[in-house]
Nucleic acid binder design. Structure first.
Ligand SMILES: [Mn+2]
Ligand SMILES: [Mn+2]
Ligand SMILES: [Mn+2]
Ligand SMILES: [Mn+2]
Lengths: 220, 220
DNA sequence: TTAAATTTTTAGGTAAATCTAAAAATTATT
DNA sequence: AATAATTTTTAGATTTACCTAAAAATTTAA
């Protein structure tokens, strides 16, 4: 059984490992909003407990045990987010912080019954996949909207940024999960993208386009 | 904002204060499963923060601020218990420990929406009243089953013991909330009570009868 | 391939919540 | 009222998760 803090470290290491194999001390510190020295302390502890493999100065990688623990927390986080949106009418930009707390509740029975109550959802309100109780989930292959070419079409199926500000902005633009879009033009001046969504033509910045994930379903 | 630990102290002091006005250090220590010396430390802290009035060697009483904080935690605890039983099909003997964790989640929006989702329940699975968002609730007046006389009738509306062992035992005997009972006899030998419930005559020990709460609705 | 910049670790300390052992105050009993 | 028993507090440590400052290792750049 891990502490609240250890769980947060494991989850953050897990997410960072999606990008780079060896996760650096500084990267963890930044995510945990703490100092590198504190991270080193915790890393040693996690290594001792068998959650990570650690070589001094070389960063960490999760062991199987560590990966399982991390995926379990991710599963809880995302299931609670579904609960908040589907059952309690939270908006997709309001759920993250509460889920950060709820994910640490320790009860296998609770999370399995919650999963059932929600109808075994496959993805959370931000389009992220929800691991099943064995930790398995489909690693969906998304394209970033920014990488599409003119006249490409697709469906919005995820976002790679979960800040409330970003999500509220998307909401206002009508760019929510499931929406069909088509690329009309890319502005020379600032690289902003003209897209067609729900019959309307709108312009979104490069920064926004970078964080919208599309499942392509048309002429490539 | 109080810590997890402070919240537990406040809740326990609140419950102990339902019996005696001045709550003793040792009583708190027993409930918190900790040592009296630790309790003294925490009491000082709570007094400094204005949650309790404290006179050395005289025990503590909650201030209004402390009472409000405690009632808020009780409200959360009981609402989560309702959620677990009504929505996730937990049994009434399975909910307490999980609710002990859930009660510390800090989000006013969450608890208000949960309350609404549950239909603003007035009592929890053990018959305990749920404070509204202003901390108000009816202090229901119960009689202990043990205090009833032969031929008295009533409805089971609560229990004053929440251990899983006790609740499972009641379940097996068919003594659940809402059940009508009538006192048939009190055994001279061991003080055990013969009661009529759902057409059947059963015998319950004094110990069990002490912890069943009845709202009388018949010949007194 | 040195020197500079960056990253990471060590050393030494703090604050919160706990503990044990012993001292002090209160309450109960003779 | 004196003594015994109980309750409560103090003193001094421990553990966890932090911190700052400085040293050490690694990486990058000249
Ligand atoms: Mn989230
Ligand atoms: Mn999410
Ligand atoms: Mn309970
Ligand atoms: Mn209850």
């Amino acid at each position: 059984m891990q502490s609240f803090t250890e769980e947060n470290y494991l989850k953050i290491i897990y997410h960072l490992a999606e990008k780079t194999n060896n996760v650096q001390t500084n990267a963890i510190a930044e995510q945990m909003q703490t100092k590198p020295a504190s991270v080193t302390d915790m890393i040693k502890k996690l290594a001792e407990k068998g959650f990570v493999d650690y070589i001094k100065y070389q960063g960490v990688t999760l062991t199987d045990k560590g990966k399982n623990a991390a995926v379990d927390i991710v599963r809880k986080h995302r299931l609670w987010e579904v609960f908040l949106v589907d059952k309690l009418n939270f908006k997709w930009d309001e759920v993250h912080d509460v889920a950060e707390e709820l994910e640490h509740i320790k009860s296998t029975a609770l999370i399995e019954r919650l999963d059932e109550f929600l109808g075994f959802p496959k993805s959370d309100p931000h389009g992220d996949p929800i691991p099943d109780k064995n930790g398995r989930f489909a690693k969906t292959q998304f394209t970033k909207l920014i990488d599409l070419k003119i006249s490409d079409q697709g469906t919005i199926t995820g976002v790679s940024q979960h800040s409330s500000a970003f999500l509220k902005h998307l909401e206002k633009l009508g760019l929510t999960l499931g929406k069909q879009i088509e690329i009309n033009d890319v502005t020379d001046f600032d690289g902003s993208v003209e897209i067609l969504v729900a019959g309307k033509q709108i312009n979104i910045s490069r920064e926004v386009a970078k964080h919208i994930l599309i499942s392509s379903n048309g002429k490539n």
